[in-house]
Amino acid sequence: MGRPPVRQGGTLRLVTPASDGAAFATQGLTKTYGAGPAAVHALRGVDLDVPRGEMVVLLGPSGSGKSTLLNILGGLDRATAGSARFRGAELTTMSDAALTRYRRHHVGFVFQFYNLMPSLTARENVELVTEIADDPLDPAEALALVGLESRLDHFPAQLSGGEQQRVAIARAVAKRPEVLFCDEPTGALDSTTGRAVLRVLQDVNRETGATVMIVTHAAATAAMAHRVIHFADGRIREVAVNAAPAPAETIEW
């Protein structure tokens, strides 16, 4: 494939028209850890299309491959074989530098344990991203979006778990990403706080048009998704399309 398609300024050149509609398309995507009899097959040939602007929930037991898929699509990990395209650009053959640019300009991440910088305030954590993004939101605006306009100058140690996760979401959306990846975003939160976080993610999806992909154990989350992908043994078992996603507030778990 040669060098990845990049243009000056560091964003990706899109090799297919933006009107194509698919954010991601994978074919035969495979990921194997280790080799020989001890090899772990995390993904065993995944074919998937994710339309742009959708909220997608990935469900499945531990070790079923959902996080591995998220990491590969997010440019954090590399596939062993197969193809994974982001709006037509092949991710599997990109150089490290190109993957960094991809993460920097197109992707937002929300992790289970927030991964905020403890030495920076809420606002500064968001600024960490807006300083390197091309067309970012105002950091205060991003924090207002997640309901933290009154906690701008608090350090992570002074915030609750739910608040920290909302700062993480504000940090992820502040760069106006095309895709937001969330790996167990509510995994460390109680149900009320978890619901509030999901609500924020739903708002972000609706208001910014970003594709949101959520990996979760909580099957109930599926109700708020446009598309639910069920994983088992490194393969997609089922893809369900939900014509009428429920508001996050109504989710029971």
């Binding site: 997010g74 920097r104 960490l128 390197i132 760069k175």
Partner: peptide, 16 residues
Amino acid sequence: ARDLASLRAIGFTRAE
């Protein structure tokens, strides 16, 4: 290490 990994995930280059 974790902060650095987070920075890399956000899109910071190795040098940054």
